[in-house]
């Protein structure tokens, strides 16, 4: 097994992208999941549904709309241009934006389930002992929801690694910038380089299996379903 320089470049880029996206999603996703778990607002349903959309939409739909939105005439494109940043399609930043939308439910839902499972009681007890809302979040909810954070991080990471349709639509296949492993595999197949495609594809299978094994192993330990795709 020998990976070419281009293959290794694609692997490193994919890992960098997945890491960046996972960190950002945990930062943004945690408050969002916390709100969804605790609120009784009438917006809870619509916002939950909006977040879950990438689970059911074909990636081409997301990719196509992102391509239009990121373009010079799209809303995101006009915004980034007005900031003097140019447009984001065909760039690493563009991929980060796309992947955040794409992997959002895989991070928010396990976190929301974990916060749900914490329940009201420990928080109420903390409140009667004089803990403020911020203190309650950081010293009660966060530690109790730790397994949820683990699942969210692993799934968000793995899902971003497995991303293809969105990247194909907005990536433009630039080495070191947007050519991730899944696109590289596609290219190998298109170029009839089946041996190289096979090597990388096999790597993806093994990697994905190990990731899922770690999540299910964790679930068994905590006797609780952490992966759930509904309200």
């Amino acid at each position: 097994m020998g990976f070419s320089e281009a293959d290794i470049g694609a692997i490193l880029l994919t890992l960098r992208l997945a890491t960046t996206v996972t960190i950002l999603l945990l930062l943004f996703g945690a408050p969002l999941a916390w709100w969804l778990a605790r609120t009784s607002s009438r917006f809870k349903g619509p916002i939950g549904a909006l977040i879950a959309l990438p689970l059911v939409l074909p990636p081409t739909v997301l990719g196509f709309y992102l391509l239009l939105a990121l373009g010079p005439n799209g809303p995101i494109g006009q915004f980034t241009q007005s900031l003097g940043l140019g447009t984001f399609a065909f760039s690493y930043s563009g991929l980060v934006i796309g992947s955040i939308f794409y992997s959002l439910p895989f991070v928010v839902q396990p976190l929301q389930n974990a916060f749900d499972a914490v329940g009201e009681r420990p928080l109420e007890v903390a409140a009667t002992l004089g803990a403020g809302p911020v203190d309650r979040f950081f010293s009660i909810a966060l530690p109790l929801a730790k397994p949820g954070f683990f699942t969210a991080a692993v799934l968000g990471f793995a899902h971003t690694v497995g991303e293809f349709g969105v990247v194909l639509m907005i990536g433009g296949n630039i080495p070191g910038e947007t050519r991730v492993v899944s696109v590289q595999i596609y290219d190998h197949v298109e170029a009839l380089a089946y041996d190289q495609a096979n090597q990388l594809a096999l790597l993806m299978v093994v990697f994905s299996f190990l990731i899922l094994l770690s999540v299910y192993g964790m679930q068994k330990k905590s006797h609780r379903q952490v992966l759930r795709f509904s309200q």
Binding site: L67, G71, P72, L168, I174, D187
Partner: peptide, 20 residues
């Protein structure tokens, strides 16, 4: 400055949407 479409249809699409 090069962006690469997977086929000529996508190459056209990149220009048509103004992204290139």
């Amino acid at each position: 400055k090069l962006v690469r479409g997977e086929n000529i249809a996508q190459t056209f699409q990149f220009v048509f949407t103004g992204n290139a």
